[in-house]
């Protein structure tokens, strides 16, 4: 389980990283925390010919809270967010792998990797975060609702780099919860709820984080809303997990997320 050979490039600025991506073409890949990428490279399931290391691009680090928004630099680690006191954003980090993953894994990397059960992907869609990207023609913002296109597929261009995520501030009353047989695993089902907006985002029920709000009246019980959310999904039986069970998990987790959001 040793990775295939590659050439290593180190960027010092976002523009430098974009320049390298443009120059090196399709065979180049950004590495940030590397917590998903390196594992895939060790299995040789990913074999980029060029790695552009952005971990030394210091301008991509850090959290800035200003009126109305929380701007999280793409290289900010899960652990840094966990300790930053950012409400649901911080609370949700306990579901991200384990401590040594959270110390290296980055917010931007998680969004770029676009695992449909990943906590950051759910949170981004829940709050329709703005994903700030830099490319050869400058900086643009993509709404999370338009970012995730399919399994591990995003609207990010091949020569674009995620530089930051922008969330609303203060974070609303919201919660994220998950179920897996074993702690720290990718969730079978994950549910994130924004109580104020009555939005629910689910992971593990489709190729991308799935927004299922607006299908019920606010004012009904959490249980009823959870049942409605579960009922709205089209699910298929899969090896080891039936549609029925997955729907049941959705019902349970959405209700629990509502309760957690309500109880702070």
């Amino acid at each position: 389980m040793k990775p295939a050979a590659f050439e290593y490039h180190r960027a010092r600025t976002p523009a430098g990283a974009v320049g390298l991506l443009t120059e090196l073409g399709d065979d180049a890949k950004i590495i940030a925390g590397g917590q998903s990428l390196v594992a895939m490279m060790n299995f040789r399931l990913a074999r980029p010919e060029h790695l552009v290391d952005i971990t030394h691009v210091d301008s991509l680090r850090g959290i800035a809270v200003s009126e109305g928004e929380i701007r999280i630099g793409a290289l900010t680690t899960h652990r840094e967010v966990e300790k930053a006191g950012l409400g649901v954003l911080s609370a949700a980090m306990r579901w991200v792998g384990h401590l040594p993953i959270r110390t290296r894994g980055t917010v931007g990397g998680s969004i770029a990797h676009a695992d449909a059960t990943a906590e950051w992907c759910l949170l981004a869609v829940l709050f329709d975060a703005r994903i700030v990207v830099e490319g050869p023609s400058g900086v643009r913002e993509i709404r999370a609702s338009e970012f995730f296109l399919g399994p591990f597929t995003t609207a990010l261009g091949p020569d674009e780099l995620i530089t930051a995520l922008v969330f609303p501030s203060p974070p609303p009353r919201a919660a994220l919860t998950e179920y897996a047989d074993r702690r720290g695993d990718f969730a079978l089902v994950a549910a994130a709820v924004d109580l104020d907006a009555d939005r629910v985002v689910l992971g593990g029920v489709g190729a991308v984080p799935t927004l299922v709000s607006g299908k019920w009246c606010s004012g009904t019980t959490y249980r009823a809303r959870a049942a409605a959310a579960a009922g709205s999904l089209e699910l298929r039986d899969e090896p080891g997990i039936s549609a029925h069970y997955r729907r049941g998990l959705v019902r349970t987790l959405v209700e629990r997320a509502y309760e957690e959001a309500a109880n702070g």
């Binding site: 290593y8 590495i31 401590l99 040594p100 110390t103």
Partner: peptide, 21 residues
């Protein structure tokens, strides 16, 4: 986690880091 080391004081998986990083 058998490869856990400290990188700038923080526990990290040394199998998921390239030395060059």
């Amino acid at each position: 986690g058998a490869c856990t080391v400290l990188v700038d004081g923080q526990p990290a998986r040394a199998c998921l880091l390239f030395a060059a990083q």
